[in-house]
Amino acid sequence: MADLTREDVLKLARLARLQLTDEEVENFTKELREVLEYVAQLDEVDVGGLQPTSQVTGLKNVMRSDTVIDYGISPKDLLALAPKTQDGHIKVRRMIG
């Protein structure tokens, strides 16, 4: 997609929740075009009736018993990793600007 525009890049950045600087927008527009031009060689490939591959193990429906296993990790240990907590919950900023 060599016609990738600056607006496309801004839209992708919004979708990916990435705030970009003007310089980054400019660089990514150029670099993404180059990468997309490179991968465009796949357009020419005839894949006939082949199905896509999403995993290579051949495993299907791996089940486990629905039991609680104690790994020695407490909710307190995990909450301690969060930047802000309150009353045993993770505290986030307001959602509506």
């Binding site: 990916a16 929740r17 990435l18 900023r93 509506i96 600007g97």
Partner: peptide, 17 residues
């Protein structure tokens, strides 16, 4: 976690930036 963000959305995109 970016300390300056005002909203949750801004917190995501500034932290990741």
């Amino acid at each position: 976690s970016d300390p300056a963000a005002a909203t949750l959305e801004e917190s995501f995109s500034k932290t990741r930036a």
